[in-house]
Design a protein around this nucleic acid. Sequence first.
DNA 1: GTAGAATATGTACGAAAGCTCACATTTGCT
DNA 2: AGCAAATGTGAGCTTTCGTACATATTCTAC
Lengths: 232, 232
Amino acid sequence: MGTRFCRLRQHRVSAVKSKRSKKVARFPRTSRRSFRRRLPRQQRAQITLEAILDAVVRILKKQGIAAVNTNRIAAVAGVSIGSVYQYFPDKRAIFVALHERHVQDIDRRIERTLVEHLASSLEGLIRGLVDTVVAAHSADPELYELLLTEVPHRGDGTQDLSSRLHGALRSALASSERKLGARRNLDLTAFVMSHMVDALAHGAALRRPAGVTLEDAKEEAVRAIVAYFQQA
Amino acid sequence: MGTRFCRLRQHRVSAVKSKRSKKVARFPRTSRRSFRRRLPRQQRAQITLEAILDAVVRILKKQGIAAVNTNRIAAVAGVSIGSVYQYFPDKRAIFVALHERHVQDIDRRIERTLVEHLASSLEGLIRGLVDTVVAAHSADPELYELLLTEVPHRGDGTQDLSSRLHGALRSALASSERKLGARRNLDLTAFVMSHMVDALAHGAALRRPAGVTLEDAKEEAVRAIVAYFQQA
DNA sequence: GTAGAATATGTACGAAAGCTCACATTTGCT
DNA sequence: AGCAAATGTGAGCTTTCGTACATATTCTAC
């Protein structure tokens, strides 16, 4: 019963329902509704929006993707179905927004890490990034796994984790403090390093083989990335 | 119009449809139908099954995931909707089977590569694996991307590419021909290398930054993995 | 405090999609 | 040929999606 999780916000029930005019001209089904309906301008709208996304997460974790339908989302969020469709054009858009929220969370973490390591050695930066990505995935591994495998989310590249890391590493490498030999291709180096950070941190957090501790995996990941960077 | 792609196999239309007894006891909706309905024993059943999976791929590539519904799958496969549900308990299971088919394809390629490189140097093996995985992803990058992002597929770990690579690399490393220092943890080394192969090959095939050629990316991937392995 | 904008409600409903089942057809086997 | 098992069929039932809209509540600005 999802109602246990409803928000406490209460809504008065309308005392009177007027008769509806039947046979109204309906919105044609063929029109494309790929836009988000309404942008939240007030804080309560933002709360509603978050409640909807949180509801999806709860249903997903407790009952699986098959149980996620729009009516249940509304019920668990403690919101009417009408409100759901005021912010999302369709069910799929809800999933995309959920992914976006997750990606933005990781983005913020990476940004913070970059700032913290402006003066660090390259190894320090690498270690910081690995820690950050591991932490991001470890915070809620179950959810992360579900988002990755069960929830469709459109692969438009730009919201891909390693492409964010690529940009971060590229500028870090380009900064005069940490020069790399002129012979090296900046993009190529950043490409390899970003995919290594992503994959190894992800693997360390979620796909560790038996007999390998998280600490060992993180340390080895850092060693591998540094080894690559320092190769002759 | 999906019908253009229908199989040519024709079915006679029943001349007479008997009246159905109304109000029959329906299959209770609550019962779990997580099993595959029927196992194909004859060749035509296997053909039907493949036709269904191929139909999904065609719809997916031409019209996107939103257009993939069970009725259309049946139509494009040139099969009745009933046949679809004789082999798959639900729509989701079709997606899972599609993933399985893909994973098995990659598995076969990896197995072949391993056999081919039984006598090769480690670098040769690494290069072979990178080539193989890149080739597997390059064969149909669009489909691969769709499968990964749009098509839900349940993440049960074992069908994960890098865990297959892990096993392969672990035994390759363990073979007496290519000893690694006793100080090194076999699982840990295989863990890092498998994730590197997977991520870098995948990245090289599908997520290459502008200005980096496929060849460069592959070569750099091999260099990075070898550098890790050879580090002091 | 009041007007107007923004937000929320929820029933009713059409369209589409998921899925079932009684029956028809084909195949393998003797 | 003939029978059972395997396979295939498709009308139609059930569920979900998403819309419409009249109405109710809350926020913001003045």
